[in-house]
Design a protein around this nucleic acid. Structure first.
Lengths: 334, 334
DNA sequence: CTGAAAGCGCTTACAG
DNA sequence: CTGAAAGCGCTTACAG
C-alpha cells in the first residue's frame, strides 16, 4: 500500500513531483522522472483512485443501468460497454432495476454523487423523467436499446424499419395470415415494431386481424400461453412474427405442442438473434440486432460526453439491424 | 452538490456534528439531530462516497470477475450478487476477462487499490495464483461456480455428484452407449463432471468407449461439430450427456441435422438449466444449477468477510443441484 | 523544472 | 453532547 509520499521519499523528490511525473501533463526533468519511475516500480505503487477522484471530481466510472441482466439481450450490450470502457480506463458499475422506476431513481441518486462520471441507461421509458433531469443538470447520459424522444443521446436500431422488413419478408414468401406476438407496448420499441407489422400488412393490402395480435408483455412471458390459447380457439395463422427471440422460442414450442410443424404449417420469425437462435429447431429466421456494437458505441459516446465534448444537439445513432434468414420460414407456393 | 459544510452552516452546527448525526454511531442531542436532518432534507444532501471512502479505507464496492457475461451461466450469478450487494449497501463492478489471466491480474491490481472492498471470482483456475495472493494479503475474496483447492471460500455445486446422478439416470432408463460432450478440462469443474460420468459407467459395468468421449472446449464451441463428426464416422450412441446446456443444444442440432430424432434415436441430457432449456425441442432434461442462489450466497459470504468476520478456515459452501426431468430422454425398453 | 501549501469532503480522536 | 484540528492520498495553482 505504498502512497505517493513513499515514492517521493524513495526518489528523493516531493510528492508534487511524483504526481507530475506520473501525469505526464507537465514538464519534468528527464532524469528526475526516471528516478520517480524507478521508485514507482520498486514499491509497486498504484495511485489511490479515491483520492484522485476526490481531488479531480471524477472517478472514471460509469453506471450501466439495465432492466435485468438475465434478459438475454443485455449481456451482449453490457459486454460492449465494458470492453470500450476498460480500453479507455473506465470501470463499469452494473445496476438491475426490474423496470422499477423508484428503484432506479434511488440507484441513480446514490451513484450520482460523484461516484460515477456518467450513465448508460438501457431502461428508458416515457415516464423516465429522472433521466431528463440528469441530462438537464448537465450530467453525461446516453441511452441504448431504448430511446426517449430526441432529447437524449441514444444508440438504437430502427425498430420500425426492421420489423417492417421482417413482415414484408413473410408476405413475400407467401404468408397471408401473420400473427404478431408483441411485448410490452408501454415501451416505444415494441410500439414501433408493431407499427412496422401494421404498415407491412397494410401496404400489401392485408387487413389486420385482431385475433392474430397477441400480447406477451409480462416479465417472463414468452408468449407460449398466448399462442397456445389462440391455436386452441381454432385461429390458425400461417406465420408468427415474434418481437423477440424468447417469444419466438415460446411460440415455436406452443405450435409444436399443439401438434403443428414449424415451418411447414406455421412459419416463425424472431427478433434479436441470440447466440442460440441459430441452433434452435428449426434454426430461427430473425432480425439480428448488433447488441455488442450498440453497447460499445454507447460507451464511446458517453466517454466523449464525459471528456467534455459538447455536441450542439443530442444525437440518435442508428445502428443497422438485418434480417438473418435461416429455416423457420417456409416459402409457400400460393 | 451540497457538502457537509453547507448542511452544518444551515443547521448552525459544526461539520463534525453533522457527520455524527448522520452516522448514528455516536450520541447526539435529539434536537440538534433534528435540525441537522432538516437541513439534510432541505439541501438534498448526499454524502460524498469518495471522501468517505478515502477516510474510512472502504468504498462499499465489490468487484465481480466473470469470464464473459455473455456465457449464459453468468447473468444469473451476477444478478444474485447484485441483489444482495444492493440490499447491503454495496455496489458491484463488472469485469469480463475472457479467461485471460494477465487481463485479470491487471484488472485486479487496478481495482484493488482501495477501490474495491473485496472480490468475487467466477474465473478461478488452478493457475490463478493471483487469487491466492490476494487472499493471503488478507483481502476478502470468494469464489463462485469454480473453486480452488480448499483454501479460498467458495460457493459451488457438487459437480461430480450431479454428473454421476445424471448419467445414472441415463443408465437406469436403459441407455448403454452414452456419449459425453465435455468442456475445457483444464477447469476442475469439467474434470469433475467427467469423473461422474466415468464412475457411473464403471459402477454399471459399462466400459468407457473412447469414441464416445467428445470435446467441446473452445470458447464458442457448443459441440455441434464434434457430435456431427462422430455420427458421420458411423459411431452411434444411444444417449448424449452434454456438460452444459449450450452443448446440449449443439448436440441436439447435430443429431437432428444428421437425420436422427431426439429422444427416439438418441437421448440428450444437459447441464445448467438455462431459462430457455424448458422450451427447446424436446424440452431438455438437465441438471439444474441454482445460479442465482450461488451468486447471492457468494455475495453474502463476501460481505461477511468485508465486515471483518474471520472464519477459522475457508468454507466451501455446497449448494444443491438437481436433475430436472423433461422430455429429451427416452425410457428404453431394453 | 520543483517544492510547500492549500484543498477535495469526509471522519474521528482530542479537548472541553 | 459538541467544536476545532488533523488527516485520508492525491493534484495544482503559487512561488521560486
Amino acid at each position: 500500500m505504498a502512497t505517493i509520499k513513499d515514492v517521493a521519499r524513495r526518489a528523493g523528490v516531493s510528492p508534487s513531483t511524483v504526481s507530475r511525473a506520473l501525469s505526464g501533463r507537465v514538464p519534468v526533468d528527464k532524469e528526475t522522472k526516471e528516478r520517480v519511475m524507478e521508485a514507482v516500480r520498486a514499491l509497486n505503487y498504484k495511485p489511490n483512485v479515491l483520492a484522485k477522484g476526490l481531488k479531480e471530481g471524477k472517478t472514471n466510472t460509469i453506471g450501466l443501468i439495465v432492466p435485468n441482466i438475465c434478459n438475454p439481450v443485455f449481456p451482449a450490450v453490457a459486454r460492449g460497454v465494458e470492453d470500450v470502457a476498460r480500453e479507455r480506463g473506465f470501470t463499469v458499475i452494473l445496476c438491475n432495476t426490474d423496470e422499477n422506476i423508484e428503484a432506479e431513481k434511488d440507484y441513480v441518486e446514490k451513484l450520482q454523487k460523484r461516484w460515477v462520471d456518467g450513465f448508460i441507461f438501457a431502461t428508458a421509458r416515457e415516464e423516465s423523467h429522472h433521466i431528463l433531469e440528469l441530462k438537464e443538470k448537465g450530467f453525461p447520459v446516453v441511452l441504448v436499446v431504448r430511446h426517449m424522444a430526441e432529447v437524449v443521446d441514444a444508440v438504437v436500431i430502427d425498430n420500425y424499419k426492421s420489423s417492417l422488413e421482417a413482415v414484408r419478408y413473410l408476405i413475400s414468401t407467401g404468408h397471408r395470415r401473420i400473427c404478431i406476438v408483441n411485448g410490452d407496448t408501454s415501451l416505444t420499441l415494441y410500439r414501433e415494431r408493431f407499427e412496422g407489422y401494421r404498415h407491412a400488412l397494410e401496404a400489401a393490402g392485408l387487413g389486420m386481424e385482431p385475433d392474430l395480435v397477441l400480447d406477451a408483455a409480462g416479465r417472463d412471458d414468452n408468449g407460449y400461453g398466448a399462442v397456445m390459447a389462440m391455436l386452441k380457439k381454432g385461429v390458425l395463422p400461417d406465420a408468427v412474427f415474434a418481437t423477440s427471440d424468447p417469444k419466438a422460442i415460446g411460440a415455436i414450442r406452443a405450435i409444436k405442442d399443439y401438434g403443428l410443424r414449424v415451418p411447414e404449417d406455421v412459419s416463425v420469425v424472431g427478433f434479436d438473434d441470440l447466440d442460440i437462435s441459430a441452433f434452435l429447431d428449426p434454426p430461427l429466421t430473425t432480425v439480428s440486432q448488433p447488441l455488442y456494437e450498440m453497447g460499445a458505441r454507447a460507451a464511446q459516446r458517453l466517454i466523449s460526453l464525459i471528456n467534455g465534448e459538447k455536441p450542439d444537439k443530442p444525437q440518435m445513432e442508428l445502428v443497422q439491424a438485418k434480417l438473418v434468414i435461416r429455416k423457420s420460414v417456409k416459402v409457400r407456393g400460393y
